[in-house]
């Protein structure tokens, strides 16, 4: 596994936003690596810092954001990189697919134009060549009659087609890393599967790594190699997909699994986690999940848990890993708590 060098490694990444009310610590010491053909899933509720992490990698955070730590793309450090140098990487080496295909494409330009723009931002093509490439890209992502569809406006595409077009735009320059931020959230279930399938296929063809960001564990199930579970700006658990799905050792991960239809147990009811994520302005002193955690005790409320390696590559940040290990059915943790 380590035979291949990582193409992107993030170490101790922290992002802070100064606001009028104080500093918002959006990301607090996140680290991970991806290698070619890897699929890394980052999961968590909205506001947990997963999108900020991806924007930090893309260098698209507002200039007010204070980014520390390290993001290395191959040999290049991206934290503190010159704007112009970043522009050469963005869209070329690292590309991104956004959540809502309804709004993520510019409504006033033809799809082909927008694709061509992406190509020509990094490659010296004339408009004819760029157009040909656009058609080819649309064809690649499975748009029928790409040659005529290329002249359509985004509003003339269906939601799924638009997301395909977005993906086409992202892969326009054969990127090494493809970040997909909730790529299927806005789509209906059958389309979701097609899009994911296509992403995986593309990854293999392009020899690229994919970072799949989602709040929905169902999406990542089965296609990710590794997963990060983020909570309150931190990675609270990381491991292989199997680790997280079958042996979660952090109550938050368990909670997320509980809100998944396929994991919702015999009673056929979803089990949402009670309470709401903490404000990133005033994080509690101890484990940020403690107010919502059935296992929380005094220690949890005062001491932030360290990262504990459970097995190789499976790391959890919980004071009660041992207790969870001892439990016969840790996945039913929340059912008990909700009585």
């Amino acid at each position: 596994m380590s035979a291949v060098d990582p193409i992107l490694s993030v170490k101790d990444l922290s992002v802070e936003f100064p606001t009028e009310d104080g500093v918002v610590k959006a990301v607090r010491g996140v680290s991970f690596e991806v290698r070619p053909r890897d699929v890394l899933g980052i999961v968590g509720e909205s506001g947990c810092g997963k999108s900020v992490t991806s924007m930090a990698i893309m260098g698209l955070l507002p200039s007010s954001a204070n980014v520390t730590g390290s993001i290395r793309f191959r040999d290049q450090e991206l934290v503190g990189i010159k704007r112009k140098a970043m522009r050469a990487i963005r869209g070329k080496k690292i590309a991104m697919v956004f959540q809502d295909p309804m709004t993520a494409m510019n409504p006033v330009y033809r799809v082909g134009w927008q694709l061509a723009e992406a190509v020509r931002a990094h490659e010296d093509l004339n408009s004819k060549q760029a157009r040909a490439r656009s058609i080819e890209l649309l064809d690649t992502v499975g748009i029928p009659q790409a040659a005529s569809r290329v002249d359509n406006y985004p509003h003339e595409f269906s939601g799924g087609m638009r997301q395909r077009a977005m993906i086409a735009m992202a892969i326009a320059n054969n990127p090494d890393v493809l970040i997909a931020d909730e790529p299927t959230t806005a789509l209906d279930v059958t389309v979701q599967a097609q899009i994911l399938e296509m992403l995986i296929k593309l990854k293999d063809n392009l020899n690229a790594a994919i970072i799949l960001i989602t709040h929905d564990l169902g999406v990542v199930a089965g296609i990710t190699d590794r997963m990060l579970v983020m909570y309150a700006g931190k990675v609270v658990e990381t491991g292989t997909a199997d680790d997280i799905f079958y042996h979660p050792r952090m109550p938050y991960s368990i909670g997320l699994l509980g809100s998944l239809p396929s994991h919702s147990g015999t009673q056929g009811r979803l089990k949402p986690i009670g309470g709401a994520p903490p404000s990133m302005l005033n994080l509690p002193a101890g484990c940020p999940f403690s107010p919502r955690c059935p296992l929380a005790d005094n220690t949890c409320e005062t001491v932030e848990p360290p990262q504990v390696e459970i097995s190789e590559g499976h790391v959890s940040a919980c004071h009660h890993v041992d207790a969870l290990n001892a439990m016969p059915e840790p996945l039913k943790l929340f059912e008990g708590a909700r009585k």
Binding site: L60, A88, I89, A95, M96, N106, E117, A118
Partner: peptide, 15 residues
Amino acid sequence: NADYVRTARSKGLSE
């Protein structure tokens, strides 16, 4: 603040 502007930036276009 629109999404398509973020998309445009992500393409590596000049500001």
